[in-house]
């Protein structure tokens, strides 16, 4: 069970949140879309990092303030390394 610190409400039980999968996947701009190949679309739509280690991911406090935010979480220890707001860049972390 995860204890997730919502940046707006503080630490809450995992129950209150919903998972939003990998963060920082930028939607191609209209300009890029004009020239994108099927393979590039597949990469954007389907391919995922799925790392064994720290994963940058989105969560939403769906049964609370309903705000989206980003979490850096280790996928083996489940340790939450950092919580940061939407729009902020992925933090640079020391390799563990």
């Amino acid at each position: 069970m995860l204890l997730i610190s919502c940046p707006y409400c503080g630490p809450r039980d995992e129950h209150e949140f919903a998972y939003g999968h990998e963060a920082h996947i930028a939607r191609p701009t209209l300009e890029q879309q004009q020239t994108m190949s099927d393979a590039e679309w597949a990469d954007y739509l389907f391919m995922r990092k799925n790392p064994k280690g720290v994963h940058f991911e989105r969560w939403v406090h769906s049964r609370g303030c309903r705000q989206w935010f980003n979490v850096a979480r280790h996928t083996v220890t489940h340790e939450i390394v950092k919580v940061y707001k939407m729009g902020e860049p992925a933090p640079k972390l020391e390799q563990k």
């Binding site: 069970m1 995992e14 998972y19 999968h21 064994k52 994963h55 991911e57 996928t75 083996v76």
Partner: peptide, 13 residues
């Protein structure tokens, strides 16, 4: 479990 993991454990709920 909704989140990605390699831990072979999940959440009790």
């Amino acid at each position: 479990d909704a989140y990605t993991s390699y831990a072979q454990v999940g959440s009790p709920f």
